[in-house]
Design a protein around this nucleic acid. Structure first.
Length: 313
DNA sequence: GCCCGTCAAGGAGTA
DNA sequence: TACTCCTTGACGGGC
């Protein structure tokens, strides 16, 4: 099995941020369009710098921050975040094409497509449109928006039906970009499989969430189904370690990854797929990924093709 | 330069 | 109905 590791949004090594913000409260006070423009350009420039850093370190899998454009989804703010930034998009696009890095977005838990409130659903659709437009502007061919199912209101059956109904309200091209992820409290991998079967969309398995919130299917049962949802594309999965074994902290992410748990995870999945991209979700971001890699080199016979890519027999 | 309160979002639980 | 907590990184005032 070929494994590529990636990290999300922030580098602990490079001291820049792609998430500089301009809060709505401050914007209302100041109405400083130039400041907003400066922040957006700074975030795009930082994204370009991070992609250069990824290239230097042979990182082939990366999640962009959702906060690239502050206030982009605020109804009260009319903001064209595409046309004025063509130069920035082009520069980033060329870097993405050059390095063939696989990139995605993961809108946060406030994007609730199955909310019982119509205005929240509408706002969630706007949030997805914003992410999709950025992917389009960056010329990313394989557009992926990883989404949680959301609210449990009215019970699971009703919640899943609401998710499917809202999904069908999305433009077709955005529907094609949606992938769903199991969460750590409510929607299990079983639920994701049910939804995936109804909507024909891929599933991102989050193994930490699965350990917190198991369905009835065994790993042997769900793994081939989850991988099949990618229809030949390289499956994406998320891996993190619990901050603490205490029930109150088991859902929180640790600074680093438990290498033995990770090795166990790889051994579990290796007979089901030839390739996998795994996003390391640890508080120490890329630093945690590189520490894990050093530990894998020490503990295993995995054959490394480059800094973040290796092969398991 | 560090510390800590605030911001921003929706859901869910409690009073 | 109103509140508090959850989560997370950035921000910004105070010292």
């Amino acid at each position: 099995m070929n494994v590529r590791l990636g990290y999300a949004c922030i580098s602990e090594t490079v001291n820049i941020t792609t998430s500089s913000s301009y809060t709505y409260t401050n914007y209302c006070k100041e109405k400083d369009e130039k400041k907003l423009d400066r922040i957006i350009r700074s975030n795009f420039l930082s994204l370009y710098e991070l992609l250069k850093y990824n290239e230097k370190n042979n990182i082939h899998f990366y999640r962009m921050s959702s906060n690239l454009v502050p206030l982009a989804t605020k109804k009260e703010v009319i903001l064209d975040y595409i046309t004025p930034y063509q130069e920035e998009y082009q520069k980033i696009k060329e870097q993405i094409i050059k390095t063939k890095i696989r990139i995605d977005f993961h809108p946060n838990e406030y994007c609730v497509l199955n909310s019982i409130k119509k205005e929240v659903v509408n706002q969630s659709i706007e949030i997805l449109k914003y992410h999709y437009r950025i992917l389009e502007a960056l010329g990313i061919k394989e557009k992926i928006l990883v989404l949680h199912i959301g609210s449990l209101s009215g019970g699971k059956k009703a919640a899943i039906t609401r998710f499917c109904n809202s999904f069908h309200q999305l433009e077709k091209k955005i529907q094609k970009a949606i992938a769903i992820e199991n969460d750590d409290k409510v929607f299990t991998i079983d639920d994701c499989i049910e939804i995936s079967n109804r909507l024909n969309i891929p599933i991102v398995l989050d193994y930490h969430h699965h350990l917190c919130n198991k369905g009835t299917l065994t790993e042997e049962e769900f793994l081939p189904q989850v991988i099949a949802t990618w229809k030949g594309k390289i499956p994406k999965m998320h891996f993190s370690s619990p901050k603490n074994r205490k029930p109150s902290e088991i859902r929180s992410h640790h600074d680093y990854i438990d290498p033995d748990a990770f090795i166990h995870f790889l051994e579990t999945i290796k007979s089901y797929t030839k390739k996998v991209d795994i996003m390391i979700e640890a508080k120490k971001k890329d630093e945690a990924m590189f520490r894990l890699i050093r530990q894998l080199k020490y503990k295993t016979n995995y054959v490394f093709a480059d800094e973040t890519t290796f092969f398991i027999e």
